[in-house]
């Protein structure tokens, strides 16, 4: 069991690195835009000192752009903080929808780069007793492998439902991708996490969804 813990930790570290690198990239972009807008304000002031009249509406627009980007950067930092805390959480009661929402927000930039759109299916929140970070890690392994198989205008919808004492998570892909291949790849790469979560992974017979089934209560 201890070697599994080691593998889970190792996968977790790699996942944490991928996510924080992506988040830092998002922050850099936000800072770059704030930097240009602030620079433009300064440029316009310098021009006004040389006699070109300042346009108050323009100044308002630029200030609003800065405010909006600061808000966006703050949202990114908030996500980073929530994600960082999930890495050191013990088994907790967590909403699966919240976990999905976190993963969609974290993965969105990387999905966009691959031409993939992510969405949540409408479903009622389901509370699970689990380690959110391990689920996030496994979802990331699923998503990054979907990105590799994705065709043009790929859409992935994350959903969940209760089945007996379990929760079944689905990643529905349109257009269809080879989900059997996806299931095998995820099963191999995420094997320690799948074992840790007592999860079963399978391709849906309809050929468009990956199904992850696990107990609602984490079994130590």
């Amino acid at each position: 069991m201890s070697s599994y813990h080691g593998k889970v930790d190792s996968l977790g570290l790699s996942f944490f690195g991928s996510m924080t690198a992506s988040i830092s990239h998002e922050l850099k972009n936000a800072l770059a835009i704030i930097n240009e807008n602030a620079g433009l304000l300064g440029d316009l002031v310098v021009l006004s000192e040389k006699g070109r009249p300042l346009d108050p509406e323009r100044m308002k627009t630029i200030s609003e752009n800065i405010r909006r980007r600061v808000q966006s950067a703050d949202d990114i930092v908030r996500r980073l903080n929530r994600f960082a805390h999930s890495a050191n959480q013990p088994v907790v009661s967590a909403g699966i929808r919240d976990i999905f929402a976190c993963m969609v927000a974290l993965s969105e930039r990387l999905a966009t780069m691959k031409g993939v759109s992510l969405a949540l299916a409408p479903f009622d929140e389901i509370e699970v007793q689990t380690l959110p970070f391990v689920i996030e890690n496994l979802l990331w392994i699923c998503l990054k492998n979907i990105f590799l198989l994705a065709g043009a205008e790929q859409r992935v919808v994350l959903g969940a439902c209760r089945e007996a004492g379990d929760i079944v998570v689905t990643l529905h892909c349109t257009p269809e991708i080879p989900v059997e291949q996806l299931a095998s790849t995820v099963a191999a790469e995420g094997q320690p996490l799948i074992f840790f979560l007592r999860m079963q992974i399978q391709a849906d017979p309809d050929g468009s969804s990956l199904r992850l089934r696990m107990p609602i209560k984490f079994i130590e």
Binding site: N29, I33, E36, N37, G39, L40, D43, R69
Partner: peptide, 11 residues
């Protein structure tokens, strides 16, 4: 990022 390139171009 349109806002970035448009602003930079103007500057």
């Amino acid at each position: 990022e349109e806002e970035l390139v448009a602003t930079l171009a103007e500057r």
